[in-house]
Design a protein around this nucleic acid. Sequence first.
DNA 1: TTCTGTGAATAGGTTCACAGCT
DNA 2: AGCTGTGAACCTATTCACAGAA
Lengths: 206, 206
Amino acid sequence: MRKISDSTVRRLSVYLRFLEQANAQGRSTISSGELARLGGTTSAQVRKDLSFFGSFGKRGLGYAVPELTRRIRDILGLERGYRVVLVGAGRMGGALVQYHGFRQRGFHITAIYDQDARKIGSRWNGLVVRDVKHLESDLKKDPSDIAIVATPAESAQQVVDRLVRSGVKAILNFAPVPLNVPPDVEVKTVNMALELETLSYSLANR
Amino acid sequence: MRKISDSTVRRLSVYLRFLEQANAQGRSTISSGELARLGGTTSAQVRKDLSFFGSFGKRGLGYAVPELTRRIRDILGLERGYRVVLVGAGRMGGALVQYHGFRQRGFHITAIYDQDARKIGSRWNGLVVRDVKHLESDLKKDPSDIAIVATPAESAQQVVDRLVRSGVKAILNFAPVPLNVPPDVEVKTVNMALELETLSYSLANR
DNA sequence: TTCTGTGAATAGGTTCACAGCT
DNA sequence: AGCTGTGAACCTATTCACAGAA
């Protein structure tokens, strides 16, 4: 498949949100102009983004809301559900387990792991925190495509190595370190301090 | 000042982390090649990024670690501290208040706000959660440059409007909606469900 | 010799503008 | 008339490649 830029994929996610709203309101069509306005981009950008995957619209009319919704869900691989394991039962892990947006979109956290004996065994949103030493054996029994890493920086790479060896192919990383993975594994790092620093930069340079 | 790309600013943040490590290890110089390897980029990229702000290196030698650290902190505006207010005392807000990376980098959360009577008055990491209705009057007394919005999607825009009217110039947004702000206000949105969707895309298209 | 600093070349993403359906 | 789909033009970011300083 033709290489699609990360920014295009991110915008598809954004369009999808507004399409779901339009669906809920029972709207039958939507134009590239309206999707653009809602998503903070331009109509040409919307049409270009969609054109990488096909011609979904009707000239003079716009896009059929239910069809385009389905198509984008399909492109993003959201028609199936995903099992997600979470490593790191700290504050951030806790927030993520509760985060409604994940389940809503078909990402189901199926297990939580930690090192800390004080956390192991406690119940979190219906799940028992397990000792991270069971990570490999659990994943062998119940494989997972996606893992969320919310450990301290020091242990993140080591955890990731173990996840990769256990067949995890996609990792969402909240530890503030770049992670090394083989080319067939995808990592997204969310680094909140770094986001604040870009804000600091913009305050300092005006 | 010449327009610097967001990606350059983000990479400077990354370099800064490794420079601080190198400092801690007492290293005196570091080359663009090494910074590149650590930060997952190329040596030409490192040199280009730095060259937008001056010539900090010594040919044949590399960069003096303490000097470059200082320069980047200065560029990013990290030599001063920032007062940060947090709106939304949910799970995510809780994780953010505790997050060590913020304080470490000079971002001090000075107040927490919520709507929910059950949360108002409770102590969080030494701060009492205040009724969000005091937002404007508090900011008038003690202005803040930066706010973190961790409210539900529905209230985010309204909260942001009030922050903007109160003089906040930079917002880190965890609510899963694009926010409208005037051009002199900077917003960074962190949308975790969207990150997972880009991972889903990469799993679906291989 | 080593490694920086930087124009020039390349690649990639966005916007333009218009032909072509409905 | 209205709105899509798309090549072409434009703009921005990255990589190359080399002159020049230590």
